[in-house]
Amino acid sequence: MQWDDLRIFLAVARDESLSAAGRRLRIDPATVSRRIARLEEAIGAALFAKSQQGYALTDAGQRLMDHALRAEQSVAAAREEIAGQAGRLSGQIRIGAPDGVANFLLPQVCAAIADGNPDLEVQIVALPRLFNLSRREADVAITVSPPTAGRLTVLRVTDYRLHLAASSDYLASHPPVRGLADLQDHRMVGYIPDMIFDKELDYLVEVGASRVALASNSVSVQLNWLRQGGGIGIAHDFALPSAPELQRMLTAEVSLTRSFYLVCHAGDARMERMNRFATTLAEGLRSEVARLEAEVDAADQARGALNPAGA
């Protein structure tokens, strides 16, 4: 059994497609198919079952997956040790994250990491769902709840805040909001209820909103609805500097706190490269959340100074 065959096997297992695996590996799908057939012949068992949904692992494929992942980790560790990168990160690392952190935090944090590591390739996969690290959908994932199953290492990165927000134009043209009860007279923006993939994202329950008139599974879509004067919703404080037309509301009554967790496959914890990347990423996220939230607080203080109570 050759490592190169296992590398192709892993690509098909992750992408569930010969053509997608070929693109990942930069080889044609016919070659991928031949190499998988050769590996199956050597093992004496079918590794994939083909269906309309793609290539799914058989029981034999699932058993081989664990061994192939360990081989991949060993090869990566050996390359890193032999290369002697003198503290620099290199190679490709894929981060899976909800689209809020993927849009408003990771771009600048990862760009800063890349500045100091020119041989590093960073990929951000922004999806409103949980990631399967065992299948290597991502090398590391950022979550809002710590996972409770799987061979994973979990690092609590930082807390972040969320508040009710709306555009100045919306508030100027609709009834005043003096308390939570007044929200019943307003159009609410939030998640599609049956597509909330983590209980920590069910924000509007905490403010007693019974109906979401404008709903999306994407934080970015929700924020843009708020910016366009679509209604009132819960927004991440760290996203508000990118939307100066929005202002926080009822901050004394509604102030939510959530946490980000950095999750890696347990086998990767032994790799010095992944440890360094995870540490650098966590430090960058902490710093960026603190910077952006301080910027929002300063903007609110300035707004209050310009519009003192009773003026």
Rank of each mutant, 00 (worst) to 15 (best):
L152Q: 03
E137G: 10
L130T: 13
E121Y: 04
T148D: 10
S145C: 01
A112H: 10
L130H: 14
R129C: 10
N117G: 10
R129D: 04
R129V: 09
P118D: 11
T148S: 11
S134H: 15
V122G: 00
A141Y: 06
R129Y: 03
E137I: 10
G116S: 12
I124L: 10
V122M: 09
R129K: 15
L127N: 03
E137N: 09
A126W: 08
R136K: 14
N117V: 06
S145Y: 01
D119N: 12
T143P: 00
A114F: 04
V144K: 00
V122Q: 09
T143E: 15
D115V: 10
A138R: 13
P146V: 00
I142A: 06
D139S: 07
F131R: 06
A149G: 00
L127G: 00
Q123P: 00
C110R: 03
A126T: 05
D115C: 13
D115E: 15
D139N: 13
L127I: 11
P128K: 05
A138F: 14
Q123F: 04
R129I: 06
L133V: 11
R151L: 10
R151S: 11
Q123H: 08
T153G: 07
L155W: 12
T143K: 01
D115P: 02
V140A: 12
I124S: 04
L120C: 03
P147M: 01
D115Q: 15
L133T: 12
L120A: 00
L120D: 03
T148W: 00
A138S: 15
V154Y: 07
A149M: 05
F131H: 08
A138P: 11
A111G: 08
R135F: 14
V140G: 06
G150M: 01
I142Q: 04
A149L: 08
I113K: 11
P118F: 10
N132G: 10
Q123G: 02
A141V: 04
V109M: 05
E121D: 09
V154R: 02
V122A: 00
A111Q: 15
F131L: 05
P128Q: 07
V144P: 00
S134K: 09
A112F: 03
A111F: 13
V125A: 09
P118M: 10
R129Q: 13
P147D: 03
R136C: 12
P128S: 07
V122T: 09
E137T: 12
G116H: 14
A111V: 04
P146Q: 04
V144Y: 01
L130N: 13
P118Y: 12
A111K: 14
D139H: 14
R151M: 09
R151P: 15
L155K: 13
S134M: 10
I113M: 12
G116N: 14
G150D: 02
G116L: 08
L152Y: 02
T153Y: 07
V122R: 00
A149H: 09
V144E: 06
Q108Y: 00
R129P: 01
G150V: 01
E137A: 07
L133E: 11
R135S: 12
P128R: 08
R136S: 13
L130C: 07
S145A: 04
F131A: 04
F131K: 07
R136P: 07
I124H: 01
